[in-house]
């Protein structure tokens, strides 16, 4: 009967089975080794390796630990300037940030927490003051976004900033779900950025121009600091509320004064945003409500930021924030 023969033909002895299993195992090992081999051969640089040339050189001399202090006593949301927040606008102009994104965004926080009141409930206070809080990426030292990235497209540099490799990002937006500060943005379409931005050499430290379908955020401008300039936001602040500095050297400046970071933070009761989450931000806040700029806590309202470019790249899309 042909079935019996068939069976004999297919019969596998124990030795043969072990041989086959060995071969299979070897193939599986090759499968594990393959990705790294491909990676080495593909010409795609390992994240941060060549971009961090200057940082690496610095590591041999002295490792900078970039940080920021935002003095909320001086921030009046640019009410006195009769202008939208200048930090946001300068960042947008300097990085050609696409339309709805504000890598540094000024939020108006209520001084007492009355946000969760039901419509029939009365607030405890007759008046409720606010303060303005410019919010860049916090450059967390325990960054939730870096932890969840499936492809290592975002990482913590030795100097502190959390950077993004736009050539590796797959656009899953897991990091945006993980970020407790909502400081990450997605290019939902071809970014509406001007053609002149195409001349800029893109690096993770200077994400210009942006690509479609990837995540972008404040990069903390370490390349500007290294060449002795303050970030766009700090340069633009008319109240000099934004200090940029180096924790390693314990020094920071707003372009007007130089302060010793540890003393300045301790003497002014500085805090970190949502510090209870354990993200260990590199951005510190000095509490206040713009009193140094003459603002009263009840002076409400911010002007809307605009995205003024001289021209817009052809074929690009502009999108709005949902529901706001």
């Amino acid at each position: 009967m042909d079935r019996e023969e068939n069976l004999k033909k297919w019969h596998v002895s124990r030795r043969r089975f072990l041989q086959m299993a060995g071969a299979l195992g070897a193939t599986a090992m090759a499968g594990v080794a393959l990705p790294s081999a491909l990676r080495d051969g593909s010409g795609v640089s390992v994240a941060g390796e060549d971009q961090l040339g200057p940082g690496e050189a610095a590591a041999q001399r002295r490792l900078r630990k970039w940080m920021m202090i935002i003095d909320l006593r001086a921030c009046d949301g640019c009410q006195s300037q009769d202008s939208p927040p200048k930090c946001s606008e300068a960042c947008i102009a300097g990085h050609f940030v696409p339309e709805p994104m504000q890598w540094i965004e000024v939020y108006e926080h209520e001084l007492s927490s009355e946000a969760e009141l039901r419509p029939d409930e009365q607030p405890d206070l007759p008046i409720n003051g606010t303060r303005f809080m410019p919010t860049p990426c916090m450059q967390c030292q325990n960054p939730p976004c870096v932890n969840v990235c499936p492809v290592g497209a975002t990482w913590s540099t030795p100097e502190g900033p959390v950077l993004i490799d736009q050539d590796r990002c797959i656009g899953c937006r897991m990091c945006m779900a993980a970020c407790p500060y909502e400081r990450r943005f997605f290019t939902w379409g071809e970014p509406p950025i001007p053609p002149e931005s195409l001349f800029v050499e893109r690096s993770p430290e200077h994400q210009v121009p942006l690509k479609k379908g990837v995540v972008a955020k404040c990069d903390f401008c370490p390349e500007m600091a290294r060449s002795g300039r303050l970030p766009f936001c700090a340069q633009a602040c008319p109240q000099n509320a934004i200090y940029y500095g180096d924790l390693e050297e314990d020094i920071a400046t707003n372009g007007d004064q130089v302060v010793k970071v540890s003393d300045f933070l301790a003497e002014n009761s500085a805090f970190r945003h949502k510090d209870e989450l354990g993200t260990r931000p590199r951005v510190y806040y000095v509490p206040g409500h713009g009193e140094l700029a003459g603002r009263k806590p009840t002076d409400h309202g911010l002007q809307e930021v605009s995205w003024d470019y001289q021209s817009i790249r052809k074929g690009s899309k502009s999108w709005k924030r949902s529901g706001t």
Binding site: R168, C169, I170, V214
Partner: peptide, 16 residues
């Protein structure tokens, strides 16, 4: 859902 379906192989190349 992903923004760059052309980079799906990054899951294999760079998976963390």
């Amino acid at each position: 859902d992903i923004g760059r379906p052309d980079r799906l192989h990054h899951f294999l190349l760079y998976g963390r």
